[in-house]
Nucleic acid binder design. Structure first.
Lengths: 352, 352
DNA sequence: CTGAAAGCGCTAACAT
DNA sequence: ATGTTAGCGCTTTCAG
């Protein structure tokens, strides 16, 4: 032992509620009540206590009150890819809302399946560190969600809907319909689709629903649906480019592309350019999101306000935690077609 | 009163350390020691306790241990713009490292000056909710940092260096030098600069240092430095576009552009395209970052690994918290010139 | 090697 | 309107 410092981590001598009580000549209970604005405190007492607390720069220790109340005043947000555009925006929305309500936002990466496991079965103990959790766009099965719920954690998801918890997002069927209809109205009949994950049977519902909308629009227009005209873009820029290559390599290439995210659309645009394919002269491209970059490259897209989704999800969660208002099981935000420069009529049909 | 539920927030009956102690027939102290791997526990006892804890699915309540130890096992990361590319990436790095170390990462938006105030003077009490904090690229004065330090919070910054706390980032002078030198080597002599904030005399050092590097490179090549050949791009896509417009509107436009971030470069590229200016035929553009989008648009850039910066910063912070190793005051990560398609020789000089 | 007991700083009955 | 007194669930001396 060469150190004199006994405590492993010397606690700073902060001023406690007792200091304030002593200085104000009242009991700690009164200080607690006064500072939290509870009733049954003489107004004069309240003011005196407040003044002294202020003067002593007293800050209640959140840990102590967490232990005493059982509430942590913080929420977790579980994110598959923290630096993805979509996720970063949701987190921004969540944080803003939580901060306003005095809640801490703790981010939780859940990219690997081990991390998912930890979350579901609370191996990491996150359930005791937060009052609730926002699940972003993650594909949890009902079984898993049930397990989560069984742990008594309050949950709200953003993205796909769920029967078990409130969720906020958009009507993805509508997204697919709007995008496709726009292309159809321009005269396109062969429309390629760049969707998300390659093989996600049940896991990831968003692409499936957008595809559904796509098909509805086609049917409504009496257009044959060629299911082979679909490639996975993995929701990434590079994936979008590869998907476009595959689609244009066909003997019967599409004249228009519905990419399920702007980032995939960017990749497609870049690929088209590198292949010497003129957009929108020879090929139309529409995306989904309205990424900041979209206005720059003139991408036609279906806009959604992702930050707002995060904020609303947080709001719902906080309302629940406050035991509050009747909360809708689903909040569907509106989307909006934004026509820019990457969509136009199909190239003149060759005869033959 | 229609509710029977007395407690405002019914605490779930979770299994506590006492349950484990009782089931194992030992004292809580022993359980605590056993589970945390402390010495002085008979191996047989340790195993029995572990087995029972496992069986009871016991998870120590972090709040209680926080109160007892004074350590929160969580760190904050203060972010000006949570959904910005740079920031999202740093946060991703921080989160990954912290998660691995068993620390929670709480994100803290500090876009408004009120939020900055709250952070500096701990009006919000964040200092008691975390053990340390990662400050991203924020322009805090030494005075402010000192105030922070006075509150006893462990701090590490990513981006600009500081004499008061460890910091991790890149050599921004070098960044400016590398970018500019690349342009000079291609033959450019009139180089426009798109930098960050419009008027940040002392606040934001990064642009200043990159500009410094730019000037060094010019001097080394014997090129006159035209300080008027610089426009603010505000580190945003749209800002980059506007800056380019301003630069090209001059009577003596530059033949090359050094944009201090890829996003500003994207905006510049889009603006160039819309103005019918060929890149790199008539204008070369180089950025900084190596954004995912850069490879797509073929942007020449100076790459930095931002995720890694976040991870390293977190590592440093955690080391400090562990009272650990000698920690360097500054970690400078390397950068790398990535030549793509947006830079080339200047257009043939007109005579006259 | 193990147990008893005193906190950590605050909140929440229950008195007064 | 205010004070007293138990806890909240864990860690950590200090004894044994």
């Amino acid at each position: 032992m060469t150190q004199h410092d006994a405590a492993p981590h010397r606690r700073r001598d902060r001023t406690t509620i007792e200091d304030v009580a002593a200085a104000a000549g009242v009991s700690v209970a009164t200080v607690s009540r006064a500072l939290r604005g509870l009733p049954n405190v003489a107004i004069s007492t309240r003011e005196r206590v407040a003044a002294i607390a202020e003067q002593l720069a007293y800050r209640p220790d959140p840990t102590a009150s967490r232990l005493a109340t059982g509430r942590t005043l913080s929420v977790a947000v579980a994110v598959p890819v923290l630096n993805g555009w979509y996720f970063a925006n949701v987190v921004a929305g969540v944080e803003a809302m939580c901060a306003e309500a005095g809640y801490d936002t703790v981010v939780l990466g859940v990219s690997s399946s081990e991390q998912r496991e930890r979350l579901i079965h609370d191996t990491g103990g996150i359930h005791r560190r937060v009052d609730g959790i926002v699940l972003i766009d993650v594909a949890y099965s009902d079984q898993e969600l049930r397990t989560l719920a069984a742990h008594g954690l309050d949950v709200v998801t953003v993205g796909p809907r769920s029967e078990l918890f409130p969720s906020v997002g958009i009507d993805d069927v509508e997204v697919g319909r709007i995008a496709t209809q726009h292309l159809i109205e321009l005269g396109h009949e062969r429309i390629g689709v760049i969707d998300g994950q390659p093989h996600d049977p049940l896991e990831f519902v968003v692409p499936r629903r957008r595809a559904e909308g796509h098909q509805l629009a086609c049917q409504a227009a009496g257009i044959d649906i060629d299911r082979s005209l679909r490639e996975s873009g993995n929701f990434s820029i590079s994936g979008g480019g590869e998907a476009l290559h595959a689609l244009l390599a066909r003997s019967d290439p599409p004249t228009a592309i519905f990419a399920m995210s702007d980032e995939m659309a960017f990749g497609a645009l870049a690929a088209a350019r590198s292949m010497g394919v003129d957009v929108p002269g020879e090929l139309s491209v529409i995306g989904v999101d309205d990424h900041e970059m979209s206005v720059v490259v003139g991408l036609t897209t279906v806009r959604q306000d992702v930050i707002d989704h995060g904020a609303r999800a947080a709001r719902v969660l906080l309302d629940r935690l406050d035991g509050g208002a009747r909360i809708p099981l689903r909040i569907d935000d509106t989307v909006e077609l934004v026509v820019r420069d990457t969509t136009g009529p199909p190239p003149a049909r060759r005869t033959g």
